[in-house]
Amino acid sequence: MSDKPTDAPHPPPTGSGGGRPTLSRQEFDDLFAAVRTWGRWRPADRGAWNRVTEDHVRRAAALVRSGVVVPMALPWNTEPGPDNRRPALHYMSDLGDVEAPEPATHKDFIAVDYHGKSVSHLDALSHIAYRGQLYDGRAAREVVDAGGARFGAVSALGPLVTRGVLLDLPAALGVKWLEPGQAVHADDVIAVERALDVTIGDGDAVLLRSGHFRRRRELGAWDPDAASAGFHVDAMPLLAERGIALLGGDGDSDVRPSPVDGVHSPVHALAIAAMGVPLLDNLDLEALSAACAELGRSAFLLVVAPLKVPGGTGSPVNPVAVL
């Protein structure tokens, strides 16, 4: 399985737009049933992370050749904006100015409502319910309450070490970024694999770069709930067939507006609630894109270590790629 670009030309992906809904609710329900993996693994609340074995970890570790380390978290964002409606908090709780024995200490406090568009975070399996059910058919009302989640909590996941694959759509298309609302279809995924000579496989973590944060830095912020590039639902059967363990990107993986009538985040529903695949949202993939281009590869060792929050529906996180 190669991860180096070839010299042979390949047809470029189309990166066609999302636009109006293209799937009915019934068609979506049929798709949900087709990719569902309920009852496949134990413990069930680790979902597709159960795919990753010691062999997967060893194969991923063998990808480390240059020693380049690339973190992917966004800076802690305390500034309000169209894509940061609930800014994070950061203030000093100790400035070392209280008379006390040496040494003086400096302490700070941080807090965040991280499920949004401005914090790099992991969605655990308790984050999404579809038609009242979490992954594995658990009734959301029975296992999630004001005290947190008793099934599918982020504390059940633990760290993930596996092979990461960067689907760099702008690099494959020869553009700076995908425009908000631009959808990535199954055919686009296959075309990018051919263009970058990389094949998504069992236990892989797939990261989609749309160029979101390059666009934001050059043109300014916008409301990604209204329009953002991401996967069309027709890409999910392909990713399910490949046996991925994790899905993420520089957006939240969903193309917006949604292509499914009455479902605002269909990729979330399919990945988390049907397939048991946690999601990584709001990653800064610009440095990883540059490193992959310089080294001529699109696969790497990926390390994801969420906070161990009992009952938590996810966690802020700083995924790290090692090439």
Rank of each mutant, 00 (worst) to 15 (best):
A104P: 03
L95E: 13
G116W: 00
A73W: 04
V69A: 10
H127S: 15
N77I: 04
H121K: 04
K107I: 01
T105L: 14
A100N: 08
T78F: 01
G132L: 03
Y130F: 12
M92I: 13
K117R: 11
H106A: 11
R86T: 13
G132Q: 02
D113I: 03
M72K: 11
P71F: 14
P103K: 10
S93P: 01
D94I: 05
R131Q: 15
P87K: 04
I110N: 02
F109G: 00
Y114R: 01
L95I: 04
H121W: 08
S120V: 06
P101S: 11
P87Q: 10
P87D: 07
D94L: 09
A104M: 10
F109H: 13
L74P: 04
P101Y: 06
P103C: 05
E99A: 15
T105K: 13
A111M: 08
Y130P: 00
R86M: 05
T78I: 13
K107E: 13
D83E: 14
E99G: 02
Y91M: 10
G96D: 07
R131V: 02
H121L: 05
P82S: 09
F109D: 08
Y130C: 00
V70A: 04
Q133F: 06
A100R: 15
A73Q: 07
Y114F: 15
H106M: 10
P103T: 10
V68P: 00
S126T: 05
T105A: 13
D83L: 04
